[in-house]
Design a protein around this nucleic acid. Sequence first.
DNA 1: TGAAATGGGCTG
DNA 2: CAGCCCATTTCA
Length: 206
Amino acid sequence: MEMELKEFTIEKTIIGPITIVFQDSDNVLIKNIILSTPDLKSKEIAYKSYDNLDSVSFSHLNKRIKKLVLDIQDYLNGKDFKFSLDNFDFSGCSPFEREVLNAEYNTKRGSVNTYGELAKEIGHPKAYRAVGNALRKNPFPIVIPCHRTIKKDRTIGGFNGYQGGIESKEILLSLENVEVQQKKVISESPVISLNKKAQKKLDIDN
DNA sequence: TGAAATGGGCTG
DNA sequence: CAGCCCATTTCA
């Protein structure tokens, strides 16, 4: 018996439509946040990825999903924001992937870090490529702010699973006042990585 | 710029 | 388990 999934799409955002896929039981479970790509709108991707998906109008949304929608809109309107992770379903993620996503979650708006730093932070200093793989599979972009991770040479790297997504990555970074030109972060200040605790850890390592 | 290193996850 | 895929990095 397949579990029935619902979908709500925020149609107009600065990075195009955003679709939230969730399981609408008494304890709602957020399964996936899908961004649009230049080729495909998020809703099409959603219906391609999941069978038995039902659309829900905003007024009929579960309270928790409503809050997530409003939070995403606030965030995209420039509010400094840390999302609640309540009701997000990480069961599809490996322990390593969870570590990566957790470290990313703890980064701050307006800061950037590198794949290598994230790897070091979670105690696998040479697994920078694996970190990229984990971020590629990030089920909850925006909420887990994977757009803040860039390459060591300060070019912005990949996003949203394929190269076309870097457009959105650039928009999200500039939304956080991180300056990007020619696919490269050009802020004068050094790359600020992770939160305070993580930064301390890194300092000890260096 | 290109090759090689690198490690987690996925497929057969 | 082997072999391949990668949103990286480093070095010549």
